[in-house]
Amino acid sequence: MANGSRQAAWEFFGLELKRRREDAGLTQVELGLRVFVSGGYIGQFEQAIRKPQLDVAQRIDEALQTDGIFERMWRQLIDDRRYAEYFAAAAELERLATVLCDFEPFVIPGLLQTAEYARAITLASNPFAPEGHIEEIVAARLERAQLLRGETRPLYWAILHETALRVPVGGPAVMARQLRQLTMLSRERHALVLVLPYTAGAHAQMGKSLRLMEFADAPPTAYTEAVYSGNLLDDPAVVKRTRAAYDLLRVAALPPEASLALIESAAEDYERCASTT
Rank of each mutant, 00 (worst) to 15 (best):
F13N: 00
D235H: 12
N231M: 00
A88L: 09
P168R: 06
A8T: 12
A91K: 10
A90P: 08
E143S: 02
T242I: 06
G43W: 04
Q146F: 04
A115G: 10
T98D: 08
V138E: 05
V107L: 13
A176G: 14
M213Y: 10
E104N: 04
R59G: 08
Y156P: 08
Q58C: 00
T163V: 03
G68A: 13
Q47T: 13
L212E: 03
Q58S: 06
G40K: 09
E143W: 13
V227C: 04
G132N: 11
K240H: 10
A120R: 01
L196R: 05
T163N: 07
V37Q: 03
Q65C: 10
W10G: 00
R211L: 07
P109I: 09
D235K: 11
F128R: 11
A89T: 13
H203A: 12
L64T: 13
L233P: 02
F128I: 08
G132M: 08
V37L: 08
L77F: 12
A261T: 15
G32Q: 01
R141V: 00
A253R: 02
D247H: 14
R20A: 12
L33T: 11
A252K: 07
G171R: 09
A139Q: 02
P127E: 06
E104Y: 14
A258F: 01
A200K: 14
F45C: 00
G201R: 11
A164Q: 04
L262F: 13
Q53W: 04
G207I: 15
V239W: 06
A97Y: 08
T242E: 08
A274H: 08
A145P: 07
F128N: 04
D102M: 12
E22H: 14
A118E: 00
L248P: 04
E143R: 02
S125M: 05
L26E: 09
D269H: 13
A88P: 13
S275I: 05
L148K: 07
L212R: 01
A129W: 00
A173Q: 14
R149F: 14
I137H: 01
R75W: 11
L210G: 08
H161I: 11
R95P: 02
F12D: 02
E268F: 07
Y270M: 09
L210E: 00
S265L: 12
R72V: 14
I60E: 04
